[in-house]
């Protein structure tokens, strides 16, 4: 996996609580057997009308958010289905960072497996970012994962918290399976004392 150290990019808002993974990637697009190509279907039913026309009022369809790579949203982002197609779609669309006051467990975990950084900020800090994206076209943030700092050009600086293991995981772009296989002997020893089903 590609290592994640620093990131600078345009911020796009999706102003809803409880954004579920069905909304992020509707089920009709889960039938592919590849990991790629899901970006075109991201938030599909919010981006397009029934007859496939672009919904102008949805934030990601507005010109000023074109090319955004940092997504900011509300509490309990990524709830519902465990589908990893959700982070695949987010990544494939071009987002590298998602910021919200809280994330659902499985989605949060899935992000790290795909080199996406999910950042938890307070409700107030997230509100500040929403207001900044509304006020200023081309509002961008700089994310420094080494220092765990988010900053903008106007002097905003927010220190964020992240589990150290997860931080290292992204910084080094680690491969979980290879890590686990280093413990082969211990796994085999454990298996010896377990009955089969």
């Amino acid at each position: 996996m590609e290592a994640f150290k620093q990131h600078k990019g345009l911020v796009a808002p999706v102003d809803r609580v409880n954004v579920d993974t069905d909304a992020i990637i509707p089920k009709q697009f889960l039938k592919r057997i590849e990991r790629t190509g899901f970006g075109q279907y991201l938030f599909y039913e919010w981006r397009f009308t029934l007859d496939g026309k672009v919904k102008e009022d949805f934030s990601l369809n507005q010109n000023k958010y074109e090319g955004a790579s940092i997504l900011v949203s509300r509490a309990n982002f990524g709830c519902g289905s465990s589908r990893e197609h959700a982070p695949w779609a987010i990544l494939d669309y071009g987002f590298k960072v998602v910021i919200a006051p809280s994330f659902a467990d499985i989605f949060y975990n899935n992000c790290f497996k795909n080199g996406i950084l999910p950042i938890v900020l307070s409700e107030e800090e997230v509100e500040t970012l929403f207001q900044a994206t509304a006020k200023q076209d081309g509002y961008a943030l700089h994310i420094d994962l080494e220092q765990k700092i988010i900053s903008d050009n106007a002097g905003l600086q927010i220190q964020f918290d992240l589990d150290e293991h997860r931080r290292q995981y992204l910084l080094q772009g680690l491969d979980d399976i290879a890590l686990t296989l280093k413990y082969e002997e211990k796994i085999a020893a454990y298996e010896k004392q377990q009955p089969a089903i």
Binding site: R35, S82, E84, N109, N110, K113, T180, I187
Partner: peptide
């Protein structure tokens, strides 16, 4: 679990 973890469990049972 997500699909990356499905792969992890298939490969390692952990």
């Amino acid at each position: 679990i997500g699909t990356s973890e499905v792969e992890h469990v298939l490969a390692t049972q952990c």
